[in-house]
Amino acid sequence: MVKIEHLKISFADKTILKDISLSLKKGENLVILGKSGSGKSVLIKCLVGLIAPTEGSVMLFEKNIFDLGEDDLNLLRKKVGFLFQSAALYDSMTVRENLEFQLRYSKSLSEFEKGELVRSMLASVGLEESMDKMPSELSGGMQKRVGLARTLITSPEIVLYDEPTTGLDPFTSREISKLILEVQKKYNTASIIITHDVECAKSTANRILILKNGAFIAEGSFKELNESTDKEIQPFFNQ
């Protein structure tokens, strides 16, 4: 589903990512761990073509996204969900309109079905009663959950989560992790999850990659990495 080869990203003269290769299969949850500022957000933004790489290629659904024209890229992006670290809600719209906006040009659903879908998505992140609030009236964690609902409403085949549980209490975090797993099971999605939250990594990951100094330094299952005695790896797990 996703294939990155020898990706390099530099801003001005600063190289953020040096040589990144990864591939992701259908139905797999890949967790990426890395220190703040290591370039995790840059990496997944590059995956959807928001940031152009200096070198290397990004393939989604067997297509190189930087070779596609605008319309083809937009079609492809509709099959990819992206949760922003900052939630990035449309602040001139209510919560309901934020979710409806994703369905704006979809012709397969009637207005009633759209309304029901919005309601059930919000219920699944526990925010049904905030439906008619503006994003500015919500707390940071609530915004994040709305962002998640907005990402998942189109039932994407690939989902990219940028720190889905950061800033949430342990209880809500667990709910979100559960939701991520549910989505994976139900739609057989491929996901990349960026997180610092060990609990979230533990419950969602099929495979974990650790990013450091612009490259992946370790790969393995949660169990393998958790038991590792490597000084580079341990700090991520002993919290």
């Binding site: 959807v48 937009n74 992006r77 509709k78 922003f84 900052s86 990035a88 809600l89 602040d91 040009y105």
Partner: peptide
């Protein structure tokens, strides 16, 4: 606030 990027990634 990344709202334009958010529209872009939803293919909008």
């Amino acid at each position: 606030t990344e709202q334009i990027e958010a529209m872009e990634v939803s293919g909008m």
